[in-house]
Amino acid sequence: MNQQFDNIPEVALAWHRAGRGVVLATVVQTWGSAPRPVGSQLAIAGDGEMAGSVSGGCVEGAVIVEAQDALQDGKPRMLEFGVSDDEAFAAGLACGGRICVMIEPVGAVMPESMLADLVAARAGRLPIAYVIDPVTQTRKLADAGAYPDRFTADKSGYEGAAFIAIHNPPLKLIVVGAVHIAQPLLVMARLAGFDPVLVDPRSAFGTPARFPDQTIIEDWPDEALMAQGLDARCAVVTLSHDPKIDDPAIITALGADVFYIGALGSRRTHAKRMARLTGAGITPAQLKRIHAPVGLDIGSISPAEIAISIMAQITQCLRKPQL
């Protein structure tokens, strides 16, 4: 959640079912320079084992003590910490401020069945929100339609008295074509919080030597994209410059709810592509979804600069789809 799809809910559920007792601590409010965003979580087991974090280390100790007390009495807690400038600097922050953390014993406060439903939705790549009213102590799960702006922005936070924790599926970028531009693009995508995948049926191109530590699929793009599963958290970029490779990928992406489709090539190349796709039965409305020439016009020349322009355009379409 909030660009980090860690496994804290999954860990908490496993610990609870193992009879170890577990508390979920969630950041519900913080200062702007915090190392962990609102929605970040820490799971604390009854035997002291921990997973995740809620700060840079300046409040973890106090949260753990309160969590152990919450396991004993089965009651939720809302903790508020004033962090001094010195403490904040030691934790890697620019300045001090305020952080609020909600403590929930699983079972006693957060129902096991609700946590299980949350974990199941995450496993199925379904966007889901965990909504808590701290006044009435009611809890529920809601789909993306309930808070569309928050899901688009990956932004947990308060709406009125209720706190909404956004759990979005991981972002995925599928790059078709193991060309030079793909090398920096895959690295940048991972740094931006995406799970990148490289697809190219040409074994000589998509090699581990050229793309170390990357997921490489040596298959035809239409089959690879269908096997990957395409949804609203996916972006697809075609770079091969070969219609036999790029066109099937674009057609497959146009048939799915991906939030971005980009295609490398000049305006002349794209005009020819549009004619081919029209002949393949693609409608004018579908063709408008293709960003080509790919990337924002920032005067890019080198492969790395082109990759920057592509990631900038992908980010713009993700965060400000109206532009």
Rank of each mutant, 00 (worst) to 15 (best):
N7Y: 03
P9I: 05
L13P: 04
L13V: 03
H16M: 03
R20E: 10
V22K: 01
L24Q: 12
V27Y: 06
W31Q: 13
W31T: 09
G32E: 13
S33W: 11
P35V: 07
R36K: 15
S40G: 15
S40R: 06
Q41K: 14
A45R: 05
G46P: 07
G48I: 06
M50V: 13
M50K: 15
A51H: 14
A51E: 13
G57K: 08
A62Q: 13
A62R: 15
V63C: 13
V65L: 07
E66P: 04
E66T: 06
A67Q: 01
D69L: 02
A70G: 11
D73S: 05
K75C: 06
L79M: 13
L79D: 09
G82N: 09
G82R: 07
V83Q: 11
A94V: 08
V101G: 08
V101M: 04
M102V: 04
I103P: 10
P105C: 05
P105A: 04
V109S: 12
M110Y: 04
S113G: 01
S113H: 10
V119Q: 04
G124E: 14
A129S: 11
D133A: 07
T136N: 08
T138R: 15
R139A: 04
K140P: 00
L141G: 00
A142C: 14
D143P: 02
A144E: 15
G145I: 06
T152W: 03
A153M: 14
A153R: 15
Y158G: 05
A161S: 15
A162F: 05
H167D: 13
P169L: 01
L171F: 08
L173A: 07
V175P: 02
V175N: 07
V176W: 07
V176H: 01
G177E: 04
G177K: 00
A178V: 14
V179N: 02
V179Y: 05
V179E: 07
H180G: 00
I181M: 03
Q183Y: 01
V187C: 01
V187H: 07
V187G: 00
R190N: 09
F194C: 13
P196I: 00
L198I: 15
D200M: 05
P201V: 06
R202N: 14
T207W: 10
P208A: 10
R210Y: 09
P212H: 07
D213Q: 11
I217P: 07
D222R: 09
E223S: 12
M226E: 14
Q228D: 03
L230K: 01
A235R: 03
V236G: 01
H241K: 10
K244R: 12
I245Y: 01
A249D: 03
A249G: 14
A256L: 11
V258K: 04
Y260P: 10
Y260W: 09
I261P: 11
G262C: 10
G265A: 13
G265N: 11
S266I: 12
R268P: 02
T269H: 11
T269Y: 03
T269W: 10
T278D: 00
G279C: 08
Q286S: 12
L287S: 04
R289F: 00
R289C: 01
G299I: 10
I301G: 05
I301A: 12
A304E: 13
A304C: 06
E305I: 12
I306E: 02
I308K: 06
A312W: 05
Q316M: 14
L318S: 15
K320L: 06
L323V: 08
